[in-house]
Amino acid sequence: MSEIVDQNVKKAGLNRRAVVKGAAWSLPVIAAAIAAPAASASGPTVTFIGAGSAVTYSGGNRSGTAPTGFRISGLIGAVSGTIIITPVGTVHARIGIQPASMFSTSAFDGNTSTTTYSAGTGTGQAIDISVGFFNLEDSAPNKPKPTDEYTYLMTVLLNGSPAVRAETNLTIRFK
């Protein structure tokens, strides 16, 4: 009995659906149900890797803390941007990005450095960019004292519309 009922229900076909008789026919299509990845919906993002890690600044061989790199997620192909390192307060040293293939040579304006980068990978993927630092110290009489510790703001800008920004602090010690 239940099978008969079931067959009757199935045979009812469109009668049990919300198809209004006489509705205009339209082309049936198979639509892809693609949920836009969150990264694509919000655009690429920049996050630091290992922020606050103990690092050594080449050049002066100074110790301090800094991120070991940064990650760009939700890529749309090739990307480029700028790394800016600005001192927080009075400093007697400048910090730049160690040369690597994806970095331009760091340029200094006073104690602020600017380094451009370019990288890229497939759409929707992420790339990790490792960063090393060097420091250039003022000479006497402004040479950093052994007790000095300076803080800098590191800003990574990712070109785009709108540009994406991430910031973290660097420290360097001179003891």
Partner: peptide, 18 residues
Amino acid sequence: TQPVVLDGTAAAIWELID
């Protein structure tokens, strides 16, 4: 790896495939 959605007449056809 990816679902599809049937709507309107496409869903009506799907319903009739039994």
